[in-house]
Design a protein around this nucleic acid. Structure first.
Lengths: 204, 204
DNA sequence: AGAAAAATTAGAATATGTGATAATTTATAT
DNA sequence: ATATAAATTATCACATATTCTAATTTTTCT
């Protein structure tokens, strides 16, 4: 049972905020409005699922600044940019930086909703992947240095005998580490381990 | 030893073509010019490495049409779009469809060259990956149906005994198929096989 | 129909990996 | 300094996988 997704609206113009709020209400989507990027950041909580609608031109941080700020923190919620006076380079920059869409006001309600729905789906998908990955990362972090070394060799397809000679330890030790690795990573088979190693990007 | 990359310039205006040609010449980059998308398509050869510079507004197929056409054929050379009269939705569409950049004329020579160099690098990288993948696909295609079934089970981590019972065949048969698979795929170890299976997207 | 490829099975020798149990030696941190 | 964790080793029994050789049956294609 996951939390209901929310549309975070950041725009300094009150009429735009209330129009968007009403639009989201009309399809039963939860939303929250902020008159500035800073106020959004002040309450920011990475655990809240949903997407962002950002105005470009605002006092203080612009929407693009906010997008860049989040990106720098490796936070990538789906973002829809809206603007009164957009230009091409600005649009290219936003989309290249990962924005779902870059829309000029006045926008079409239906296409905005389409974007929002797509954004929310994307966020849900990302969150699922991220949380699975974090589980695996936690297990990996729990490995001792030696165990990590052995894991690396195992996923490279090296036999225990080879690993032993490369690490200058006995085969027994390798077996011990290896079995600890399987246990700690909660892998039943080698292919389970390989799949996790992939997610952890341990594989060339 | 790979073929020298080429910048394919598609623009109906002769002055633009010659300006770009000169620009490429000035940094020793090979280029070829075409006055229309159709003429580019007529000589198109997927084996030629490089990138594309496409004008949006042209008689016949537009640059965006050509981009879409190539995309529909799963051909994804790096594309730089240039335009005299671009608008925001057009730029968003191009970049969303994978264009490296969308630039309004008159463009800055240096930033064009930066884009081209980035594009050529990206193409080289893609080609490397694609050719490795194609090698592996060829091997996979060479597997018999039964061998493919066994491969699928193996990468799911199933033991020979289990595979045998699921396929209603003897363990010996599974072993025979399995060893053929390793041979045909040119895999020395299970992890080699897993890595290939990943590229082939045989893994969930 | 006849040849070729694919699928099937078996047996035996060998190599590898797994699991359980136990014990010793380093490190490391409180 | 002394628990605690990490790293090390060994051994035995058992399960699995690999390699080789050889043969039979079934499909498939010409």
């Amino acid at each position: 049972m996951s939390i209901e997704p929310c549309v975070f609206i950041v725009d300094d113009e009150e009429p735009v905020r209330s129009a968007l709020t009403l639009l989201m209400d009309s399809v039963g989507l939860k939303s929250e409005s902020f008159p500035s990027a800073q106020e959004y950041l002040d309450q920011f909580d990475a655990s809240k699922p949903g997407c962002l609608i950002l105005d470009v031109r605002m006092p203080g941080l612009s929407g693009l600044d906010l997008q860049a700020r989040l990106g720098a923190e490796k936070i990538h919620p789906p973002i829809i940019i809206i603007t009164g006076h957009g230009d091409v380079p600005m649009a290219v920059r936003a989309v290249t930086a990962g924005a779902i869409d870059f829309i000029e006001k006045p926008f079409n309600n239906q296409s905005m909703l389409d974007n929002v729905h797509r954004a929310i789906e994307q966020d849900a998908k990302q969150r699922g992947e991220t949380s699975r990955l974090q589980d695996i990362e936690k297990r990996y972090d729990d490995l001792t240095p030696r165990e990590k070394e052995v894991l690396q060799c195992v996923i490279e397809g090296k036999r225990n005998k080879i690993i032993a000679s490369e690490m200058n330890i006995s085969q027994s030790t390798v077996e011990a580490h290896r079995s600890k690795v399987m246990e700690k990573m909660v892998a039943n088979t080698l292919s389970d381990l390989m799949r996790m190693a992939l997610l952890l990007k341990l594989i060339s």
